[in-house]
C-alpha cells in the first residue's frame, strides 16, 4: 500500500496527464461524427447567448452585403410571382392543390457562429427546436447550400458546414444529369471536390453542379458551384473535379433552414422496402 502511494506521489505528474488526456480523448472520440447533443445542449445556451451578442455587433459590418443579397433574391422571387406575368389565359395560374403539394418549408435563421479555417467546420444558428428546426434539415443560402443540421437545442441549432470531412452531398452535373458526390478536401474554403463521375463523361470548365435531391435532405436543383478543373488520376475510372463553391462560406449571415414535409414518408417507404429485402 505504502509502495503504491509512493508510486502515485512520485509519478503524479505523468499519471494525472494520462488521466486528463484519456478524459479529453474519450470526449473527443464520442463526439467526432455528429456532435453529441448532450455535451452541446449543456454548453449551447451559454455559448449561444455569447455568440448572439457578439454577432449583434458584427452583423452591422455586413449590412450592405446582406441587403444586396436580399434585394437580388427579392427581384428573382418577384419575377416568378404571378403578378409579373401578363395573364391572357386565367387557367395558367390556377393552382390545383392536389397537383401542387407543398414539399418544402423555409425557416429564416441567422448565423451566429461560423468557421472556415478548420478541417471540420460547424455553424451555429440563432433558432432551434422552438422554431421547428430539427436534426437532418438542410441549411441553404440564396447562393446555394451551406450545411445540414446535426443537433438542436431549444433556441439554437448546430449545423455541419459543407466544409467538413464528413460532408457527402449527392450532386449532379446540370447539363447531362451525371450523378456524383461532393466532398471537401480541407484546403480552400472556396473550393469543393466532385467525385464519382465516370471518366467517359464529357465535361467542360464552367459546368454547373447542382444537388440531385436524392438524399431527402436537400431539395433538388440547388446550386453547388461551377467546375474549375477536371482530371482522371492514373489507374482510376472516375474524375476528380475541383469546383468553385457558389456560396462564400466566409460571409454567411442569413440562411434558410429547409423543412422537407415529405421526408418522413420517403424515409418510411425506404425503410419498409429495405426490411422486405432483408427477409
Amino acid at each position: 500500500m505504502r509502495n503504491i502511494l509512493a508510486f502515485i506521489v512520485r509519478y503524479h505528474f505523468l499519471l494525472l496527464f494520462v488521466v486528463l488526456e484519456a478524459v479529453a480523448i474519450t470526449m473527443f472520440v464520442n463526439s467526432t461524427y455528429y456532435q453529441q447533443s448532450a455535451v452541446l445542449n449543456a454548453g449551447n445556451n451559454i455559448t449561444g447567448r455569447f455568440y448572439t451578442s457578439a454577432s449583434n455587433v458584427t452583423g452591422y459590418f455586413r449590412l450592405r452585403r446582406t441587403n444586396e443579397l436580399l434585394s437580388i433574391e427579392n427581384s428573382i422571387l418577384r419575377q416568378g410571382s404571378g403578378m409579373s406575368f401578363l395573364k391572357n389565359d386565367t387557367n395558367t395560374f390556377w393552382k390545383n392543390d392536389t397537383l401542387y403539394r407543398q414539399q418544402y418549408k423555409y425557416i429564416v435563421a441567422r448565423v451566429i457562429h461560423n468557421s472556415t479555417n478548420k478541417r471540420n467546420n460547424y455553424i451555429m444558428l440563432d433558432k432551434g427546436r422552438r422554431f421547428g428546426i430539427e436534426k437532418d434539415m438542410a441549411v441553404i443560402t440564396p447562393d446555394g447550400i451551406a450545411g445540414t443540421v446535426v443537433s438542436v437545442s431549444e433556441n439554437f441549432a448546430w449545423v455541419m458546414s459543407v466544409l467538413n470531412k464528413y460532408t457527402r452531398i449527392s450532386a449532379r452535373i446540370q447539363k447531362n444529369n451525371q450523378m456524383g458526390t461532393v466532398v471537401w478536401n480541407g484546403v480552400d474554403y472556396s473550393i469543393g471536390t466532385l467525385t464519382d463521375i465516370p471518366a467517359h463523361v464529357k465535361l467542360s470548365r464552367g459546368d454547373t453542379i447542382v444537388t440531385s435531391g436524392f438524399s431527402n435532405i436537400f431539395p433538388a436543383g440547388l446550386m453547388l458551384g461551377t467546375i474549375k478543373d477536371y482530371r482522371v488520376e492514373q489507374g482510376e475510372h472516375f474524375y476528380v473535379i475541383p469546383f468553385a463553391f457558389s456560396v462564400d462560406f466566409n460571409s454567411l449571415d442569413y440562411v434558410y433552414v429547409v423543412k422537407s414535409l415529405m421526408k418522413e414518408e420517403q424515409d418510411k417507404l425506404k425503410e419498409t422496402t429495405e426490411e422486405q429485402g432483408n427477409e
Binding site: V23, M27, F28, G43, T47, Y51
Partner: peptide, 29 residues
C-alpha cells in the same frame, strides 16, 4: 498538477466555444 489542471480547463473552455468537445482539451493538456 496545477499546470495540467489549468491546461485542461483552458482547453475545455475553448472547446465549449468552438463546439469541439475534447479536441482543444487534449491538445492543451
Amino acid at each position: 498538477w496545477l499546470l495540467l489542471a489549468l491546461s485542461f480547463i483552458t482547453g475545455l473552455t475553448v472547446d465549449l466555444f468552438s463546439g469541439t468537445p475534447g479536441l482543444h482539451t487534449a491538445a492543451t493538456v
